[in-house]
């Protein structure tokens, strides 16, 4: 079993590299020192208190929330259409079209950001929150579709036909049968796209203009004055907990959806 041991060592190192920085985050957020270095000094919650009093930060959080909520709603709504078309209808060029929509998944964000910036400036649309929402919808859509595809394709096609057969119109059949069954997928898509948008930096920094979102604000704080670093770490701690919570909820709903329709689990993000 030498091979197995090699793989295990690799996995352990991988996990350490991945998560050690995140573990350091709360460690220094509660550390009573402005300098980020060992040994730790004492325990303090000052940095969290300082968070509470920063109004620019609150502004940034608010903007990020607005962008994230709008993005989540739009990306999920579009995702529902795409996933339904993809699972229900056969049409010419379906493969290429769906592949095209999924492209931002592998495209570097910086390319999406730059191209959107160029286009938006060209068509005379100013930078700001709307532009950021547009950019975020583009990068969130593939995630929404991936999640919703799994929800829609685990549905038995004859469920919908049974609803027609029992007198429902296509619209009421969708509302009474399809929607409740894919609802867990929709919720999970909303949560995931919300999370992606909330902490997205590159596209936001290119497109928001003067309206700093939270990640943009944070980055500027970190680079401009290092005094603020422990406060930023405190914020980071809060955000990590928040993200874990959201992802957990999203995965719960995704699994529940699959269990409900009696389908097989074919992936997912957790």
């Amino acid at each position: 079993m030498r091979k197995g041991r090699g793989l295990r060592t690799y996995t352990i190192f991988y996990l350490i590299f991945l998560y050690a920085p995140i573990v350091l985050l709360p460690l220094f957020a509660f550390n009573d020192s402005k300098i980020i270095a060992f040994p730790l000094k004492g325990f303090t919650t000052d940095w969290f208190v300082a968070l509470w009093h920063k109004t620019e930060l609150h502004q940034a959080v608010l903007k990020s929330l607005i962008i994230a909520v709008t993005t989540a709603v739009f990306a999920t709504a579009l995702g529902v259409f795409a996933a339904r078309a993809g699972t229900k209808y056969r049409f010419r060029g379906k493969g290429p079209v769906l592949g095209f929509i999924m492209l931002p998944l592998v495209l570097p964000d910086i390319i999406v950001a730059v191209s959107l910036l160029v286009v938006l400036l060209r068509i005379g649309m100013g930078l700001g929150m709307t532009a950021a929402i547009l950019g975020h919808v583009v990068i969130c859509l593939p995630f929404a579709i991936a999640i919703l595809n799994s929800a829609f394709s685990s549905l038995d096609q004859s469920l919908e036909e049974a609803a027609y057969d029992l007198g429902e119109t296509p619209f009421s059949a969708f509302r009474l049968v399809i929607l409740p069954l894919v609802m867990p997928g929709i919720i999970s898509s909303l949560l995931i796209t919300f999370t992606i948008s909330l902490d997205e930096y590159i596209i936001a920094s290119f497109l928001v203009g003067t309206e700093e979102t939270l990640p943009v604000y944070l980055f500027n704080q970190m680079t401009k004055n290092s005094r603020e670093i422990p406060v930023v770490l405190a914020l980071g701690t809060v955000l990590v907990l928040f993200s874990i919570l959201l992802l957990g909820i999203a995965e719960y709903f995704r699994r529940r959806g699959i269990a409900r329709t009696g389908g097989k689990d074919t992936g997912g993000f957790l």
């Binding site: 004859s158 469920l159 609803a163 027609y164 029992l166 007198g167 429902e168 049968v177 409900r260 009696g262």
Partner: peptide, 16 residues
């Protein structure tokens, strides 16, 4: 939905 027929599907199509 407007035909005087009803169907029992092979998969039964029970709404879960």
């Amino acid at each position: 939905n407007h035909r005087p027929t009803n169907m029992v599907f092979q998969s039964y199509a029970i709404f879960p």
